[in-house]
Design a protein around this nucleic acid. Sequence first.
DNA 1: CTTGACTCCGTAGTAGGGTACGGAGTGTAG
DNA 2: CTACACTCCGTACCCTACTACGGAGTCAAG
Lengths: 136, 136
Amino acid sequence: MKALTIGTVARQAGVGVETVRFYEREGLIPQPPRRPSGYRQYDDGAVRRIRFIRHAKQLGFSLRQIRELLALRADAQTSCAEVKEQAEAKIAEVEQKIQDLQRIRQALVELTASCAGRGPVSACPILEALEDNTTS
Amino acid sequence: MKALTIGTVARQAGVGVETVRFYEREGLIPQPPRRPSGYRQYDDGAVRRIRFIRHAKQLGFSLRQIRELLALRADAQTSCAEVKEQAEAKIAEVEQKIQDLQRIRQALVELTASCAGRGPVSACPILEALEDNTTS
DNA sequence: CTTGACTCCGTAGTAGGGTACGGAGTGTAG
DNA sequence: CTACACTCCGTACCCTACTACGGAGTCAAG
């Protein structure tokens, strides 16, 4: 594997050069070796790592959570189970969101139905859809 | 219903006092009447409204979108046809969000299904799956 | 050997969504 | 009537996740 410049890595990973440097500053990717000129020298592990970050972000993980995920991986002691746990927590989170959205959807449907003419405009179904759910 | 101070409203809604004032500045909650001293006087509609904002935020709506959602309700008595149109646009928006989340959920479920939950992290199929997925 | 793209770095700015500060006035329980 | 918590306001600051800027040095094609 030949050395890649930051621009190549960025292109292959689908992000901007500045984003790569940003991820490095944030500790999401390791500091790569440098040429005598100071140019960063990457291998394609860096590309895969940035793709990992991108995908995890699309799944709703924050950079902080992604850093934790990557740290898990870096530590050979940790087990696969821990990773799975995180993913399962995420699933629960996402499922809750879906349910709440369905309630909002229902409220909006009711709203438009009452707009159709008949029936009184019932006391705000939109607010009612999400009012409670104590704290969270 | 007796008048509530900003602090009480904040506590009951689960946000900080500054956040209530911020939402007022942003037009997410109406400007309440004031006592002669300038103190804001709320009723519990304000609490419900802020709770609504909190939940909607958790569902990924921006404050701008939430403002629009709330505006729908405010206008519900006046111009039905227009409101209905807006509401229908919002329904589409919500349905899109639900679909996005279902896609995310599916991806996560597949990921965890592939993982037996034991063994070292080095062999974790979840992390491996996140790595590849050419480009996207 | 020139030229033009690429890289270096630090700093600063963006948008969205708050959170904190500080000094002065207000409300209320004891 | 005195504490002490609460409220007022404006301004400034924080975090997240980038994105841009600018001046100087580097690399590789022609």
